[in-house]
Design a protein around this nucleic acid. Structure first.
Lengths: 210, 210
DNA sequence: TAGATTGTTAATCGATTAACAATC
DNA sequence: TAGATTGTTAATCGATTAACAATC
């Protein structure tokens, strides 16, 4: 819980998009931007932008707008990008391995320390220096390596059981790619990437467009 | 546009979740379910469930509830699962290859017909029988193979350009994994999977929980 | 100072929940 | 028939948009 009033999920989910667009502006050497100008490129209303940002404090200046660099940095901080995160990937199948290979996350401060699996055949295999280890030893590894986030890439059937093992070993944040909804204690946060749901949304829109 | 009144995105995004839970019920041989019982397992209110389903017609029966098999089938139909889809993956990097390997989609009727890339070194490589081809020939391939959906897995910088090539070759549905918002004509539907945004949502929740 | 644009309150809109008559 | 539960209307809640005073 942060000290201020509760921020709605609608706002929270817009924050990364602000962050991404501000990075673009920064790369294009734009120093300041008004809510109106930002509205034109990001597609939210100027009013919504001001409301959103004001949930976190007065980043703007009347008559001037927002300082791009400052706002980018502040939103990054709100999103937790002022620190780095140690992560493990649990489930070293195609998706798990692909995510291990995805160096983009590394750049943002997310370090994959190991992959874990239950299949002895893959133990010891390395994905760009990241070793696949035996799930039996995940507990000590989490503690010794200060793991913040577990990236869950198992199949649907083992996801809940694996999540419980992770939680019992102190994991408080799970990025869940398994197509199921996890039951976890209140102090554990879960963010789902439900690919099938996303794909079915696409087909719905595609079909109803015809 | 479908003939009925416009369905809100909030409802549409819940449909795949109904579909998933109904599949579970079906696998557990449960024949019927009331909105109250479904509420207990899916987490939406019974009222919302009835409202949602009634957007598409009266699938239930007073005093009885809903027939699980029928409802599962009907929602599948609404989501477009009564037909199969030919897809291509554009961008044969880690993510593109992982998705090509992901046989789950195949089972639901999504067939990956080819991968495309611009790097000649990977032309001809096969991911479980699916060949990586030269992006230069994507146009004829789309037409000859009746491709419905393009899965966009390029990097951020080429995503817009590639999307335009796809659209000019008749693609009307793009599942976008590139971390950018595509500009496409009105008759083209895009569904984004913005992994970084999802991860930053997780870190926000994780940090504000401490 | 005048102009621009924020921060913030008020109004509107849309989505969720509650209630209950209809009906199986 | 009585009980259960839907379909649907009305009430509430929350999120978005509009408006404008504050102020840089």
């Amino acid at each position: 819980m942060n000290g201020r009033t509760k921020i709605s999920m609608a706002v929270i989910r817009r924050l990364p998009k602000y962050h991404r667009y501000l990075k673009d502006l920064l790369d294009r050497d734009i120093k300041r931007i008004s809510s109106k100008e930002l509205s034109d490129i990001i597609g939210f209303t100027a009013s919504q932008i001001r409301q959103d940002l004001n949930n976190f404090g007065g980043f703007g200046q009347q008559g001037y707008g927002y300082n791009v660099e400052e706002l980018y940095y502040e939103i990054g901080k709100i999103l937790g990008l002022d620190k780095t995160y140690n992560t493990i990937i649990v489930g070293a199948g195609n998706l798990g391995q692909a995510l291990a290979n995805y160096t983009n996350f590394d750049k943002s401060g997310f370090h994959v320390k190991a992959l874990f699996d239950i299949n002895p055949k893959v133990f010891g295999i390395k994905i760009r220096d990241i070793e696949i280890k035996d799930m039996d030893y995940v507990g000590p590894f989490i503690k010794e390596n200060d793991i913040d986030i577990a990236i869950l890439c198992t199949n649907k059937d083992s996801a809940q059981e694996v999540a419980e093992i992770l939680v019992s070993n102190g994991i408080k944040a799970i990025w869940n790619f398994a197509p199921t909804d996890l039951r976890v204690p209140d102090d554990v946060v879960v963010e789902n990437v439900h690919l099938v749901e996303s794909l079915l949304t696409l087909t719905y829109l595609y079909r109803s467009d015809e």
